[in-house]
Nucleic acid binder design. Structure first.
Lengths: 205, 205
DNA sequence: TAACAAACCTACCGAGTACTCGGTATCGGG
DNA sequence: CCCGATACCGAGTACTCGGTAGGTTTGTTA
């Protein structure tokens, strides 16, 4: 039986194949970036011909978009399943995200590589990267504002600026960590930052 | 007349041409990354044929290395000409660097794009990126240690961790700023971080 | 001014790129 | 069982890529 969400868009075998393709494409984009990834190689690893691959995703750009959408969706699920963090709890939840990231370097590499590649001219992930940062900043800033409203935070805090800085630190640490995992204890460094931030944020420390 | 440093390695016209090529290649690498840059386009903009370009730089990788070396050298000159910052003065000097960067987005883009592209497999700038981070971290950490030795800083500071975090913040802010310059006031955000850091570092604030 | 290297050029190569065309086999619902 | 959609594949398109071979022009120097 077919549910209404299945827009009679293919067979089960096709769905499985698409899933496999997305899995492999995620690895390839993470390892070589968008420009460095070739459809031929993705197709080969997925066990079909290159035109066969393009049957499922009509262009390379469409494949990239599908990969990014799947990743965003999975990350959302994982984070919100974890718990719905309210005010300042969001910050400790972010620490847990970074700890999880340190166990999945391939996914971290995907984001680092693609977001930076996106600052080049005419890159297909440009809008995605911009929107993602905007969303992340708004998300953290809102949590900070809610914390301020609940009296968890001393007044006068610039929520937007603090949010941008938290996210910048996460990103910057990821780059250093990917290049030299032994030299950089990413979770510890991020946790230290959040701890100091919390110490200065409390109304009367 | 030829000085002894000119290792009879070409004519003056050739030197000028090489300089022009490096200037253009810097722009191209910044705008399209290493993989997205084509020698044909660099050659065209420099006003010679593509084999003519390869006469001066025998491979694409060699051209990249030359660009990076020139940039590192120029940046060193600029920074150390500014002043020899000792202990905590280095931090305020870094703020000035960020302010200067915010006026030269093309050079910021060069570093952001290439360092992140370098975390992909078999990238020619990998060693350069690793070495650069190591150097930057050691540089900032040393300054912090010297400040601690001079009593400018309360004891118990983890110089290496603090250095890594400062640099991570600089990098992360650059990415957000390049994607959305209007939304991110990069110098202000970095200055705020340094100010807070200085406040917590002083022996008895 | 002769000799020689530097600074190019045209022509070309093999490999790789994303993508298309025109088919065929296979699967699932009526 | 049949029919249409799906899931492919082989062959090829038009192009770009970095790099090479071999020659000619230009500039410097002895």
């Amino acid at each position: 039986m077919r549910t209404s969400t299945d827009r009679r868009r293919g067979y089960a075998s096709g769905d499985a194949r698409r899933e496999r393709i997305l899995h492999i494409a995620t690895q390839e984009f993470a390892e070589h970036g968008y420009r460095g990834t070739s459809l031929a190689r993705v197709a080969e690893r997925a066990g079909l011909s290159q035109p066969g691959l393009l049957h499922h995703f009509r262009t390379k750009e469409q494949l990239l978009v599908a990969v990014l959408e799947l990743r965003d969706q999975r990350d959302m699920e994982r984070f919100f399943a974890d718990e719905a963090a309210g005010g300042l709890d969001l910050l400790t939840a972010l620490v847990r995200v970074v700890e999880h990231n340190s166990r999945t370097p391939e996914l971290v590499r995907l984001f680092v590589v693609l977001t930076s590649e996106a600052v080049t001219a005419d890159h297909p992930a440009q809008d995605w990267a911009r929107a993602r940062y905007e969303r992340l900043r708004a998300w953290v800033a809102d949590a900070l504002r809610r914390a301020a409203g609940a009296g968890e935070v001393r007044p006068g805090l610039d929520a937007d600026a603090t949010a941008a800085r938290i996210i910048a630190l996460m990103d910057g640490l990821q780059t250093q960590w990917l290049l030299d995992p032994d030299a950089i204890d990413m979770p510890a460094l991020f946790r230290a930052h959040i701890d100091e931030l919390l110490a200065t944020l409390r109304p009367r420390a």
